[in-house]
Design a protein around this nucleic acid. Structure first.
Lengths: 241, 241
DNA sequence: GTACAGCTTTTCGCATACAAAAAGCAGTTC
DNA sequence: GAACTGCTTTTTGTATGCGAAAAGCTGTAC
């Protein structure tokens, strides 16, 4: 039948009031495929511009075309691939313009995030930030680029989480990840400056100084943006973020 | 075969250098379904919390489950439905908290958008804004709520477009639409205040005064946010945006 | 030798089929 | 009468099939 609003509703009355958190999830295959493809894109196994053939990916991942299709569509809405109408998926090729626009948006969002974080941070939050800061500075010592990049991402994600604005936090997550993708192959993440700025930021948040936290984050983000622009200059100061 | 990075590349050499813009598009069915479902959600035919059964929607729209599934997934990533793991799609139920967070993010994004617009606006841009402003004020006279809402959305979208930041513009589009969904049933869009603020905004942009444009937009957005909070009070000043 | 036309191959888009999980219902037991 | 157990129904998740469009290739004409 074609009657649409046939609303099925809440299952039934209250049985066990306490919410039992389910630990095992049925593993939604499309999600696994999404993660796998994103990983392949981020680590450059799948190069920008490359044509992604559903059947090939399906066979490579050992699943059918269906989950692959679904993953590709989500990858499109998240900006990782372009889905040309009757032609299939192509790994997105970032342009200069787009990268700069993303960096600009990120700057705005992160600045606001820092402000909110300063207003909401609890003692436990500050403790976490200090821990992440320490991890980052330790990673600085090693030559482990991947670890440094992760430490950086973790700190920024933590600040976003402390802002207590989930919408903002998710948005930052998406934008940040893409920025990092564009930026990573260029930046040689060896700069100490970035982590000095992080330290300033953490202090401002710990003090509950929203204005200052916002200002520091803004400076930090714009510095990154500048570095991105100056990257063709042989000896610009690089920045791990 | 399972060899993955089999990179297919640029089709061939340059044939016709001039880009021929194709006017006819093959109508991607999933997109049509997405639009249809979004419309049904926004105009409340599909109520928040309602369970969306793929087969029913498919029959209702006269297509198979496949395009419906794809549309539902995109609707999820855009925040319109929740896709519970093995249970299907449910129209998203906005919470107070989420609405406020969206309003906050919108405020930040639109403020930045206004600043950029003031920096980039050409004479033609200003002309367009004035036209939209005029259309809005005319709509104010009528009792046509839908028209007023559209005029409002158009003006904000125009400002975002003038910012020349596509990433920003798309984000604002998504956030704005959701905000409007939450806000519409509450706000009785009859206030003149909103359009007075718009007039101020257009003037600031025309003057190329980024600081002022940003400030006006920020005030405008925060006013909306405040109105949303005060809506339980019987005689709060309502605002069409 | 070059360019066009028609054919073949590949690949997507949509539809359908099947399996598995969840929800709902009924029967039974205490 | 209430609660649990097992079965049936419904709905999702995944796989496969088929038609159509696009790309690439081959052959031919000039």
């Amino acid at each position: 039948m074609t009657s649409l609003p046939s609303g099925r509703r809440a299952p039934r009355g209250s049985l066990s009031a306490a919410a039992t958190r389910r630990v095992e999830r049925p593993a939604p295959l499309r999600q696994a495929v999404y993660d796998a493809l994103l990983e392949l894109i981020v680590n450059r196994t799948l190069e920008p511009g490359q044509h992604l053939v559903e059947a090939e990916l399906a066979e490579y991942l050992g699943v059918s075309r269906q989950p692959v299709r679904e993953a590709l569509q989500r990858l499109q809405t998240d900006g990782w691939v372009d889905l040309r109408p009757a032609q299939g998926a192509f790994v997105h090729t970032p342009t200069e313009e787009e990268a700069d626009q993303l960096l600009a948006v990120r700057s705005v969002l992160e600045t606001y995030s820092a402000k909110l974080a300063a207003e909401h941070a609890t003692a436990a939050d500050v403790k976490l930030l200090r821990k992440l800061q320490k991890a980052g500075e330790e990673a600085l010592g090693t030559e482990n680029v991947e670890r440094l990049v992760k430490a950086n991402a973790d700190l920024h994600a933590a600040v976003a989480a402390i802002s207590r604005n989930k919408v903002l936090s998710e948005m930052i997550g998406l934008v940040d990840r893409r920025v990092r993708w564009y930026y990573t192959p260029i930046a040689r993440p060896r700069s100490r400056d970035s982590w000095n700025e992080h330290a300033e930021l953490v202090t401002a948040i710990a003090d509950g100084d929203a204005e200052r936290a916002g200002e520091v984050m803004h400076r930090h983000a714009e510095q990154t943006r500048q570095t991105y622009h100056d990257r063709k200059a042989p000896e610009g100061s690089t920045d791990s973020d």
